[in-house]
Design a protein around this nucleic acid. Structure first.
Length: 506
RNA sequence: GAGCCGUUAGCUCAGGCGGUAGAGCAUCGGACUUUUAAUCCGAGGGUCGUGGGUUCGAGUCCCACACGGCUCACCA
């Protein structure tokens, strides 16, 4: 249905009066009459508002009998012949206004009666309470500030069509006020992160989004082109390598909040552009990052819920530290019986998977750690509802992480899980330039063998490491996923204002 | 990429076995000067996602396509 119904935002209907839907034709005609009478609403430049809905309610007792000027969108109307009740909705809430023929006179009352649902108006008058006790502005003067030429979604059932909700998010926000709360929560979460870090001496920085060479994660990039320099550039898949250059430069605590771009599929947990926070702290390590995650998520949870407990998908979740810690291979072994510490290669792993009838699809084309990853996704991750750090990732899939002193096959890396969702990635940063080069070379070989997401060689980064980077812990958290979990939304699209959709074909 | 489901009035939704499309809100006209999903009376509004096919006849059955949703796959 969307093709026609939602696909009309660009059609102006010029000279096609016969094709304009009924309700829009009526509104257009009203606008033409206003313009002809020299009262074009779109010539208004503002309105001297004195109170928002919330302010009006807050100062209700002092305002009774006083004048107030309010603004908002006309979202409901109850006519009574020579009087009209209407609901104005502004960002803070709803305001009832009451227009009477006696107060406005014939002409102004007729003009008020001519308003359509969706119109944006300003109104001024005396504040009073109706006999049912509702705070109301008795209109003595009003102005149409913008004409709504299209009818709004229906007031009672709201807007359900997910396609229109995402394509025309403004309609979603108008029709479903609770959707605004999700995005307020998102902003509060980011604010909580920012405050938490700034209070602890972290510096917020901005590093390039357009990068001559991408890196810092395993993902395929978007490519673009700079005309003047005639060079290809990549949209960043992660800010990691730039932030660590800042550690080399002498900043000891830095963070960046920003958009990342990964050229991958779209589903309930992935959007091609998403928001991540990355934090780097010198002279600490993965353990320090675990405490930081506990602190950050705790601060966000407090900001959103006033508590360290919340509900996601029907599960009570408690983020009180310390969070459970479990090594990756141990978690896999406990859940599946497979011990990847003793499995030498992919063929052995495939055989073990088959023997145990593990349901992870076709493993024929997968490498050893890809098989481990699948077993983890299928048998471990869904159970990680309470906050958990999965630790000790194999060095083969952690090209930027420092090895564990007691087991060089593993790294001091962890991923935090919450509500069964992976919400980030962190480790002790590899700062040995020679080993970093060897790791990159290994990635380059993987790329040559067909791994499109292997990390490219970054000589410039290695040069930076050669000047000396202090030992450090680094952390990335997915803002979208965290918001999804902390606001108990079922889908990443619910926390992204304008998720990517296919364009409508004409 | 695969499977399943969806697409009917501005919005939310009904439409057995194929017989020419309905409701509520919204809109238009009328009544009503403290209502609040206001109420009451009356009316208009549809290329049933697009294109083919089967049929005397298709919203309904079949095929293809588009967009979306869910699940899986891919992927942090």
């Amino acid at each position: 249905m969307g093709v026609r119904r939602a696909g009309r935002p660009s059609s102006p209907y010029r000279g096609e009066a016969m094709e304009i839907p009924d309700q829009e034709r009526v509104r257009r005609e009203k606008l033409e009459r206003l313009r002809a009478a020299g009262r074009d609403p779109f010539l208004q430049h503002g309105y001297p508002r004195t109170h928002s809905a919330r302010e009006l309610e807050k100062h209700a007792e002092a305002l009774l009998g006083q004048q107030a000027a309010v603004c908002g969108r006309l979202q409901a109307r109850r006519g009574h012949g020579k009087a009209i009740f209407a609901d104005l909705v502004d960002e803070s809430g709803r305001i009832q206004v009451y227009a009477r023929l006696d107060d406005l006179g014939e002409e102004q009352f007729a003009a008020f009666d001519d308003l359509d649902l969706g119109d944006i108006i300003g109104a001024r008058g005396e504040v009073f309470r109706t006999r049912t006790g509702e705070l109301t502005v008795r209109v003595s003067e009003f102005a149409l500030l913008a004409k709504a030429l299209r009818p709004l979604p229906e007031k009672f059932h709201g807007l359900h069509d997910p396609e229109i909700r995402y394509r025309q998010r403004y309609l979603d926000l108008i029709a479903q006020p609770q959707v605004r709360e999700v995005f307020r929560a998102r902003a509060a979460l980011i604010q909580a992160f920012r405050s938490y870090l700034c209070e602890r001496g972290f510096l917020e920085v901005e590093t390039p989004i357009l990068q001559p060479l991408y890196g810092g994660a395993a993902a395929r990039p978007f490519t673009t082109h700079h005309n003047a320099l005639d060079m290809n550039l990549y949209l960043r898949i992660a800010p990691e390598l730039y932030l660590k250059r800042l550690l080399v430069g002498g900043f000891e605590r830095v963070f960046e909040i920003g958009r990342m771009f990964r050229n991958e599929g779209i589903d309930t947990r992935h959007n091609p552009e998403f928001t991540m926070i990355e934090v780097y702290q010198a002279y600490t390590d993965a353990n320090g990052m675990m405490e930081l995650v506990e602190g950050l998520v705790g601060a966000a949870c407090q900001a959103l819920h006033g508590s360290l407990k919340f509900t996601y998908r029907g599960n009570q979740i408690d983020v009180t530290p310390p969070w459970r810690r479990v090594p990756l291979l141990e978690a896999i072994r406990a859940a599946s019986g497979l011990d990847f510490a003793t499995i030498p290669d992919a063929a052995t792993a495939r055989q073990a998977v088959a023997e145990r009838n593990l349901d992870i699809g076709n493993t024929a084309a997968l490498g050893l750690w890809e098989i481990a990853d699948k077993v983890f996704d299928r048998y471990v991750q869904p159970a990680l509802v309470q906050p958990t750090f999965v630790t000790d990732y194999p060095v083969a899939i952690s090209p930027l992480a420092k090895r564990k002193p007691d087991n060089p096959e593993l790294t001091a890396r962890f991923e935090p899980f919450l509500g069964g969702e992976e919400i980030g990635n962190a480790f002790s940063e590899l700062n040995d330039p020679d080993e970093q080069r060897a790791r990159f070379e290994q990635q380059v070989r993987a790329r040559q063998e067909g791994d499109l997401e292997a990390h490219p060689m970054d000589e410039d980064y290695i040069t930076a490491l050669e000047y000396g980077m202090p030992p450090a812990g680094g952390l990335g958290l997915g803002i979208d996923r965290l918001t999804m979990v902390l606001t108990d939304q079922p889908n990443l699209r619910e926390v992204i204002l304008f998720p990517l959709l296919r364009p409508l074909s004409e």
